[in-house]
């Protein structure tokens, strides 16, 4: 296979869709297409990206309305068949609402939107999304969110830990997230949700390339 086929889902209010497209297409030189949220089936892609943004204005509850977009049944089917799905920021929130990942998002502890570079520590490098990193590597990747305060009950947290599902932890907790969680994966290991934006740290000019290896890892894995 020469190129990987990525599908970036566009919900009304998505606003990192172009950024993800740009990095996958212009930086990583892979095959990318947009998938409109009104489509009902996912076809001809190797990996689905649920991008960041404010799907449906974050109205009612972040990710809650997008979760009922027609495409989400397609995404769920795709994931259940083992397809790779990565949800970034709002995409992570949608995966939580859709039940593809456990837990929920609360407002940031300081009740403000936070946009800044943060450092996150890699806890699990044996995933399709992180296989190119070094063990325990610390990455510099920006966050930009209002609701990144990850919540899960104690039992759920225990399960996450037992199954090695916590993929990234903040080195300094910016938002109040339980157990410093910045990103988790499902039990099966094919659906990743993360609050930091790897597409924003994929080029030298933007101050960090640490995020690029997530996308590169995906390409490596599928190949």
């Amino acid at each position: 296979m020469e190129f990987l086929r990525f599908g970036v889902v566009v919900f009304p209010g998505s606003n990192c869709d172009h950024d993800c497209f740009y990095v996958l297409n212009n930086v990583l030189k892979q095959d990318v297409k947009y998938i409109w949220h009104k489509e009902i089936e996912v076809r001809d892609v190797d990996c689905i990206v649920l991008p960041g943004g404010f799907s449906y204005g974050d109205y009612l509850r972040t990710g809650a309305i997008a979760r009922f977009s027609p495409i989400m049944q397609g995404v769920i089917d795709f994931a259940n068949k083992g397809g790779l799905v990565i949800g970034i920021c709002n995409g992570f929130q949608i995966l939580l609402e859709a039940g593809l990942l456990p837990g929920a998002m609360l407002r940031n502890k300081n009740v403000h939107f936070i946009c800044k570079h943060v450092h996150i520590k890699l806890l699990n490098k044996n995933t399709p999304f992180t296989n190119l990193y070094k063990k325990d590597e610390v990455l510099k990747i920006p966050i930009a969110h209002n609701e990144g305060n990850y919540y899960i009950d104690e039992k759920g947290l225990k399960t996450l830990k037992e199954n090695n599902q916590i993929v990234f932890q903040y080195c300094a907790n910016p938002n109040g997230a339980a157990d410093n969680i910045a990103g988790i994966i499902n039990k099966e290991g094919n659906v990743l949700g993360m609050m930091p934006h790897p597409e924003r740290s994929s080029e030298k000019e933007l101050g960090s390339q640490d995020g690029l290896f997530i996308f590169k890892s995906i390409v490596e894995w599928v190949k």
Partner: peptide, 14 residues
């Protein structure tokens, strides 16, 4: 102030 603004989206802020 500016930490509350998304100042990086669109991948252009050098």
């Amino acid at each position: 102030v500016y930490e509350q603004y998304d100042h990086m989206i669109q991948l252009n802020t050098v």
